[in-house]
């Protein structure tokens, strides 16, 4: 009965690992890393699991053995109802987890520093994108190219991407699993995320922080393209003749799920900073407050 159960648990664990290996092939998983950040995260993931096996496996193996050997009815096994302490054993069962946690802790400290989402990535020609979380879409502003997109992030493959984030509504979280981790976007604040795509491709991106009815539809494609294609795309967008002005932005900021990605040929200077500053200024109420 119990041995069966333990083996069932193992079966599920194996199924889970198998699922991770196969099922993710076509999915937006960090295990299908397409950039250096996600690749390191994937490496770390398996490393942590492997280290933990030292603690976990003794339980999976030892528990069924103990249960079987010391089941009631097996009179061959030693019965010692008063046995309740063994200092050496106690040293081991404290010592091993402590050791594992010390090692993992060192690893954790190190990896938290190296994989800090705020840390700029190595490489030339960093491209800056300003992402604004709206209900229920992402606006991407390219401050250097003076263009903007909605629900489509086009980046040059092989070049570091620096993303500044904010929100013009409730809290959101920008996540492109195959490129790396997520960071919250919050109104009145600027957060940062640094990613890079190794090779051209189309990568799924999304918001993971619930923000209402349209939440599940708030996703976008990240298109990593060659440098040449990127420049060509910028030129094409600029020529498309549909600028993002303040009025257009106000419409855009209203609750909606766009049918298709949008592209804007021009962006007002400092829009991103104004979206942040809007929440810092007392324009809405309380005019009598003195300085």
């Amino acid at each position: 009965m119990t041995a069966g159960m333990a083996s069932k648990a193992r079966l599920f664990a194996m199924a889970m690992v198998a699922g991770l290996l196969t099922g993710c092939a076509a999915s937006p998983s960090f295990l299908q890393a397409a950039g250096p950040v996600a690749a390191e995260q994937r490496h770390l993931f398996w490393l942590v699991i492997a280290a933990l096996m030292v603690v976990v496996l003794p339980v999976f193996i030892g528990l069924p053995l103990v249960l079987w050997r010391y089941r009631r009815g097996n009179d061959k096994a030693r019965y010692d109802p008063k046995w309740d302490w063994n200092p050496r054993l106690e040293f081991v069962i404290w010592g091993v987890p402590v050791l594992i946690v010390v090692l993992l802790g060192i690893q954790l400290w190190h990896s938290t520093q190296t994989l800090d989402p705020y840390k700029r990535l190595d490489g030339n020609g960093t491209i800056t994108v300003q992402a604004v979380g709206l209900d229920w879409k992402w606006l991407f502003i390219y401050p250097d190219q003076h263009i903007a997109t909605v629900n489509r992030l086009v980046i040059p493959a092989g070049r570091p991407v620096h993303i500044d984030l904010t929100s013009d509504t409730v809290m959101q979280s920008l996540f492109i699993p195959r490129l790396g981790g997520q960071i919250y976007a919050m109104a009145g604040m600027r957060t940062q995320l640094n990613l890079k795509a190794d090779r051209p491709g189309s990568y799924f991106g999304e918001n993971t922080q619930y923000n209402g009815e349209g939440f599940h539809k708030q996703n976008f494609r990240t298109l990593a393209v060659t440098d040449a294609a990127f420049d060509g795309w910028v030129k094409r967008v600029k020529a498309s003749g549909s600028p993002l002005n303040e009025a257009r932005y106000r419409t855009l900021a209203k609750k909606s799920v766009p049918d298709a990605p949008m592209e804007f040929s021009a962006v007002p200077e400092g829009l991103f900073a104004r979206i942040i500053a809007k929440y810092m200024q007392p324009e809405r109420r309380g005019k009598e407050g003195g300085q």
Partner: peptide, 25 residues
């Protein structure tokens, strides 16, 4: 005992900030 140990393992994964970035939420 069996199930909780699995949960503990995934807990350590979530406790590692760089891994949390990819599985959080």
């Amino acid at each position: 005992l069996v199930t909780f140990v699995i949960g503990g393992m995934t807990g350590i994964i979530l406790a590692t900030p760089p891994l949390d970035y990819v599985v959080h939420n």
